[in-house]
Amino acid sequence: MNLVLIGMPGSGKSTVGKILSRMLCMPLVDTDAMVEAAAGETIPELFAREGEAAFRDRETAAARQAAELDNTVIATGGGIILQPENMAALSATGLIFFRDRALEDILGEDHMGRPLVGKDPDKLRILYTQRIELYQKYAQYTISHTKTAEEAAARIAALYREACQP
């Protein structure tokens, strides 16, 4: 059973994923890194050259590929929830954990490498408003009120172990 992390850009999915990978002795894949590897360029470059729709197609391919793995921590891009087929594939082979980090905490960080956010905090607020219901809809577990990635990972690891016990 895979462990899938969803959440807003900047919510710490990649960081929490690395910690979980070590804690649970499971490999880690990151769908954004998979997209970049397949495209041979960064996500900002891909957005600039091909646009968001092409990126989303590549993201769906990465979601399907990640869903075929087993016993793997999967950190996803913030927009993975926008395509129902992504979440259908990922939830078929994994437990979905939503890192519900406070928007105020996310706003205080650098988002220059995120093409849909950049330097404009209002864009992040808009994304949050557009996506929060989807994160809640797809999450089997919501991890809120954690101040550190380590605290979030410990909570997720405990829930994952409990869910996977025979």
Rank of each mutant, 00 (worst) to 15 (best):
F97G: 00
Q165N: 01
A153T: 05
T60K: 12
S144I: 06
M1C: 13
A152K: 09
D110T: 06
T129I: 01
A67T: 12
L69A: 09
T146W: 09
L24I: 05
K123G: 01
E41L: 15
A48C: 00
N2H: 06
A53S: 08
P166S: 04
M23Q: 14
E151Q: 15
A63R: 06
E52F: 06
L134A: 14
G12N: 09
I96Y: 00
C25A: 14
T146S: 14
A33G: 06
A53D: 14
D110Q: 06
K137E: 06
V35T: 05
P166W: 12
L127T: 06
T15P: 04
Y141A: 07
I19N: 03
T31D: 08
G94Q: 09
A158Y: 08
Q65T: 09
P27Y: 08
E68V: 00
A154L: 07
N71M: 10
I96S: 07
Q140R: 08
C25I: 02
I6C: 00
A92C: 09
L134M: 15
S21E: 07
V117A: 12
C25H: 02
E68T: 12
A37V: 07
L24Q: 05
C164K: 08
L82G: 01
A88H: 13
R101K: 02
M1Q: 04
E85K: 13
F97R: 08
E151H: 11
R114H: 08
G17D: 09
L82H: 01
F55T: 02
C164P: 04
K119A: 15
E41H: 05
R114E: 03
E151A: 15
L124H: 04
I126R: 11
E162N: 13
I80Q: 04
L90K: 01
Y135G: 12
M23S: 05
V29T: 13
A89T: 08
H145R: 07
L124C: 07
E133Y: 00
A163K: 14
R64K: 15
C25P: 00
A163N: 12
E104N: 07
D110K: 12
N71G: 11
L124S: 09
R114S: 03
R58P: 10
A33Y: 10
M34S: 13
E85V: 12
Q140T: 00
M8T: 01
A53F: 15
L159H: 07
M87L: 07
V4H: 03
A39G: 05
E36T: 10
E52R: 05
A139V: 10
I143Y: 00
A63Q: 02
S91H: 15
H111M: 13
E133P: 04
D120G: 07
R101N: 05
L127Y: 04
G78K: 07
K123N: 15
R22V: 02
A92F: 04
R49Q: 14
E104M: 04
A61K: 09
N86R: 09
L134S: 06
Q140E: 10
L90P: 03
D57S: 14
L95A: 03
M26W: 14
L90E: 02
I106P: 07
P84M: 15
G12V: 08
A153K: 05
Q65C: 01
T146P: 00
G118L: 08
N86H: 02
D70H: 10
A158E: 15
K147L: 11
G94L: 02
E50I: 00
D57G: 13
Q165A: 07
S91W: 05
E45K: 13
R99A: 01
L107H: 03
Q83K: 13
